[in-house]
Amino acid sequence: MTKIGVLIFLLINLINSKLEPKQFIARQGQVSFFSYTTAENIEAKNNQVLSIIDVSNNEIAISMLMNAFVFKKSLMYEHFNASYIESDLYPKATFKGVIVDFDPLATTVQTRIIKGTLTIRNISKEINIKTKIENINGNYILTGDFELVVEDFDIKIPPIVAPNIAKIISTSFRFEYQSYEK
């Protein structure tokens, strides 16, 4: 009887562990970028960035539509999509990687490095991004910022507008994750 009891106990535990959420999703992740030059400041924000983290192996994936970036000036939005990012040809930017030494159970704020591959305009770059991870009742918030070099992604900037667009773009992000039920 006790053996059966132990077996049932183990089985319940096994089922429980299966139900424990392994993946978390952020559906309204925010990614902003800034271009600071003496001539002009350009800022854009995307509030519809998707991301999933898998806490069983600490993997992270991010995907965003380039035409979902909002600019203060509508003509900048048009130029960004039509002439620089060419979102007709390359609609998405993606990132996939691993959060190094991430402890999903820790309730304190963790600062970790995400190692991964960023793909913009079908050009992939290995990149390390520092992120602050908060665990609020089992849901995670990832924030951070990093820099991108415009030239790395073969974005053509005509000489006449070169003074208005920074060579290095500051990028910041904030993702709020909830458990992911398919």
Partner: peptide
């Protein structure tokens, strides 16, 4: 069984809302 990052990216792409 864990997904690799590529599969995770495919899972993300399935989550796009109809905008």
């Amino acid at each position: 069984m864990s997904l690799n990052a590529q599969d995770l990216l495919e899972a993300v792409d399935k989550e796009y809302p109809n905008i």
